[in-house]
């Protein structure tokens, strides 16, 4: 007998409506808690640990992370049905890494499809391939990060090697998924023309030659590190200047990839 997908539980830390930069149209983003990477610039540090934690933010203590059923999340997501219908929007799973909670996440995707809501994921694609494969059949759009082509540097700045990520990028692209690749452009990590060109070359060579979004570094997450009693590696580093982004955009475009700044 098929299980009741609406009662599957998972752990999220936020639901954000009217998101217009994370997939087509007006979308609702569900942020799942827990991540395999520890990116030094991460703007959502409260997303990293699976454990529920306290964050002092905006003058008060807030509990980050709560357990919900698919049905409860669906109820929230459905509220903006009119907006999805007009704009071609829908649900976007983000995190953290949504693929670390596959049962919950996939049931949520299925529940949305059953209601006629399209689905998208923002992922690091670091999960096992058979897990990713299960996700793909329930996704209309995939937004996948590619942060650096150099394995060592990737490991140093994110805590994980890039080997599986690169392998999965190729496989996802080959699966025929509607794929968009995204690169956060981080000062001192990947903000040189050479590094971006390497990424763009790789993206261009992927099956179907997906689009590439360059996302300029911002520091809006800085206060959250304080609130979590954690050190912020990028403390005091100013956001990426649009002027510095332009040569990177051009370098990527020269590789033949369709590229834009921002989501």
């Amino acid at each position: 007998m098929e299980h009741d997908i609406l009662s599957t539980t998972g752990r999220i830390f936020d639901i954000q409506r009217y998101s217009i930069h994370d997939g087509p149209g007006i979308r609702t983003i569900v942020f799942l808690k827990g991540c395999a990477l520890r990116c030094r610039w991460c703007c959502n540090p409260e997303s990293q640990h699976f454990e529920v934690e306290n964050m002092f933010f905006g003058g008060k203590n807030e509990t980050m992370g709560y357990d919900v059923t698919v049905g409860e999340v669906l109820h929230s997501v459905q509220k903006d049905m009119f907006f999805y219908r007009r704009s071609g929007g829908g649900l976007t799973l983000s995190g953290g890494e949504a693929m670390l909670q596959p049962d919950f996440a996939i049931d949520l995707l299925k529940a949305c499809h059953a209601e006629g809501i399209n689905t998208c994921i923002e992922t690091t694609a670091i999960a096992k391939w058979d897990v990713i494969d299960r996700f793909l059949e329930n996704l209309d759009f995939v937004y996948m990060d590619i942060k650096h082509m150099n394995n060592e540097k990737h490991r140093e700045f994110t805590g994980q090697p890039n080997t599986k990520i690169i392998e999965h990028a190729i496989k996802i692209a080959a699966s025929g998924a509607r794929l968009t690749m995204r690169t956060p452009v981080i000062p001192g990590f990947n903000d040189t023309v050479e590094e971006i060109r390497d990424i763009a070359r790789f993206v261009h060579l992927l099956p179907g030659s997906p689009r590439l979004h360059l996302l300029p570094y911002h520091r809006l997450g800085e206060d959250k590190y304080k609130g979590l009693n954690r050190d912020y590696f990028y403390a005091g580093v100013p956001p990426m200047d649009m002027k510095r982004m332009q040569p990177l955009l051009r370098a990527a475009q020269l590789e033949g990839v369709e590229c834009q700044i921002g989501g």
């Binding site: 907006f83 007009r86 929007g89 921002g262």
Partner: peptide, 20 residues
């Protein structure tokens, strides 16, 4: 929120959905 063609489009769609 209204940046770029996609921002304008989302904004227009937002109004239409409120009107729906």
């Amino acid at each position: 929120a209204l940046a770029g063609q996609s921002g304008l489009q989302a904004f227009a769609d937002y109004i239409r959905a409120y009107f729906d």
